[in-house]
Computed example of a mutant assay.
Amino acid sequence: MSDPARLNPPLGNTDHGWAQPSLTRRHLLAATAGMAVVAARGEAKAADSEPSLSVMLEELPPFSFRDAQGEPAGYAVELVREMLRRAELSPKFEFSSWQRVMAKARGDSAVLIPTIVRLPEREKAFYWLGPISKRHGMVYRRKARPDVNVSSVQDLRQYRTAVVMGDISEREMLSLGLDSEQHLDRSTDYGIALRRLFSDRVELLAISRVLAPAMLKQYGYNFADLEPVLKLRETASSMALNLASEPALRHKLQHAFDAMRRDGAMATTIARYPMLSLE
Rank of each mutant, 00 (worst) to 15 (best):
V111M: 15
I270Y: 04
V148D: 09
Y221H: 08
E203F: 00
E58C: 12
K217Q: 15
E279F: 08
V150K: 06
D263A: 03
G191E: 13
M215T: 15
I207W: 04
F126K: 09
R171Q: 15
A144D: 14
L79P: 09
A31N: 04
E58A: 14
Q69H: 05
S109Y: 04
D185I: 01
Y140V: 13
V153M: 00
R157Q: 14
L176C: 08
G220L: 04
N13S: 15
A236D: 14
Q158S: 14
S2E: 15
P4T: 09
S277F: 07
S187F: 05
R100Y: 02
E88C: 13
A248D: 14
A224Y: 12
M138V: 06
Q158E: 11
L204V: 06
S237K: 04
R81W: 00
A103G: 07
R262D: 15
R85K: 11
S97F: 04
R86H: 11
A214F: 10
V77Q: 06
R135G: 12
E71W: 06
S152F: 06
D3M: 09
K143V: 10
F198E: 03
A33P: 02
P114W: 02
L249S: 09
R186M: 04
P247G: 04
P21S: 14
V139L: 11
T14I: 10
L176D: 01
E181K: 03
A39T: 14
K134H: 08
R186P: 06
T115S: 09
A236G: 11
A68H: 07
A87K: 04
L194K: 01
R196G: 02
A248I: 06
L232Y: 02
D147P: 02
E246R: 11
D263F: 04
D147F: 00
P91H: 11
F65Y: 11
K252H: 12
L194S: 08
E82M: 15
L232K: 00
A110F: 03
Y221M: 03
N8F: 15
E181W: 01
P213K: 02
K143C: 03
V163N: 04
R81L: 12
M239K: 08
P146D: 14
L176F: 09
A39K: 01
Y159A: 06
A36M: 11
N222R: 14
S199H: 01
L226P: 02
I132Y: 00
V139P: 05
G107I: 03
V164Y: 10
S237H: 03
F93D: 01
L89R: 10
R261A: 13
V117L: 11
A76L: 07
M215C: 10
G191S: 10
V55E: 03
L79I: 14
A33V: 07
V139K: 01
A271E: 09
D108N: 12
F257H: 08
K104C: 09
F65A: 08
A19Y: 13
A30N: 02
R135S: 13
L89H: 08
A47Y: 05
A39E: 10
P9C: 09
F93S: 00
A39M: 12
L119G: 05
L60C: 06
Q254A: 13
Q20M: 11
D147Y: 05
Y273H: 05
R141A: 13
V139R: 01
S199N: 05
R262G: 09
V37K: 03
L112Y: 06
A240E: 10
V163G: 01
I270M: 06
